[in-house]
Computed example of a mutant assay.
Amino acid sequence: MSKAGLEALEIAVQEVKTVISTLTEEEWSRPSGCKGWSVRDLVAHMSSNYKETVDPSPAPAEPINLPAERMMDMLVDMRDGWTNQQILDEYLAFADQAVAVLASMQEEPLASTVIPLADLGSYPMNQLADAYAFDHYCHLRIDLLAPDGPIERKMPNADAVRLAPAIGWMITGMPQMQADLGRTLSAPITLTLTGPGGGVWTIAPAGADITVTPGKTPGTVADVSSNGHSFINWGTQRSDWREHCKVTGDEPVAAQFLDALNII
């Protein structure tokens, strides 16, 4: 999926540039769809990630053992004194360079080299393109743009090229991103995502963990279905899964798992 992730990210970067280059001062200050962050904070998050990808800050004298979300908050906080223009300039300066760095990770020996991502798990480096494609899809199309976000701009519809890598990252990360998630699932269930980038997966308990396999396997007790775009929304707990999903079969089993699921 990673080369597809790179293609999706290249498209998303251009779309983000189009939107953030036209923001008014008032629009920069609006609350985004990402809880606790303004539009300005959201763009600072994306720009700071790209800067760190291209030009990493020096390692601290003592290792920082913090959750990934807190480390991202720290990067945003460091830009509190910046102007909106400075944040925009940082994004424009580093976005394309970061995409080039991620492209270099699609070839060996980097492609298959596994690295840890704080508390999010460990992944081959070529999958970082999927992570960034997910990040940009979510922040652009859920947190920034209406109807879920505060900014009204016209954008091409989300097709499979844009959406499939984001969904792929969520499916890949689901078994690693939450400790003890398997304890919320008492029997296997099926996840069916319709529309662009969709598919079918079986989610099964494996002790404290879960496994996610393509297709529907025998023994599932419930099927959870939603469209793929909505999965980005409810799978990250930006909204309640009940607003988007249809559950057939043993709903209490599915509900306990879905209430706990929170992909980053």
Rank of each mutant, 00 (worst) to 15 (best):
R70W: 08
Q127N: 06
R141G: 00
K154G: 04
P109H: 14
D135V: 02
P109E: 11
R70V: 15
L163C: 01
P67V: 04
M74N: 05
S122A: 15
G121S: 03
M78W: 09
D135K: 06
D80H: 05
P67K: 04
P116D: 13
P116T: 03
N126V: 05
N65A: 15
D89T: 03
A111H: 07
D80R: 14
L66P: 00
A100V: 11
Y123D: 06
P156A: 01
Y137G: 00
N157F: 01
P116I: 09
I142D: 05
N126D: 10
V101K: 12
G121I: 01
N65F: 07
L140C: 01
Q85E: 15
E69D: 13
C138R: 03
V161S: 08
A158D: 03
Y137M: 07
A95Y: 11
K154Y: 01
F94I: 14
F134Q: 12
L110T: 07
A98T: 13
E108Q: 12
E107L: 10
G81V: 00
L144Q: 13
D130R: 05
A93N: 15
M125S: 03
Y137C: 11
A111R: 08
A68Q: 08
D77W: 08
A95K: 13
F94H: 15
Y123W: 08
P116R: 15
L110D: 07
Y123V: 02
R79K: 11
R153F: 06
A146P: 01
E107C: 03
D89H: 03
M105C: 09
Y91M: 07
V101F: 08
D80S: 12
M105H: 05
E90S: 09
P124G: 08
A118S: 11
L140S: 00
D143H: 06
Q85W: 10
Y137W: 10
P147L: 14
A160L: 04
R70Y: 13
D159G: 12
D148N: 13
A118C: 04
G81E: 07
Q85N: 10
Q86P: 09
A131H: 07
M74W: 09
I142S: 10
A103K: 11
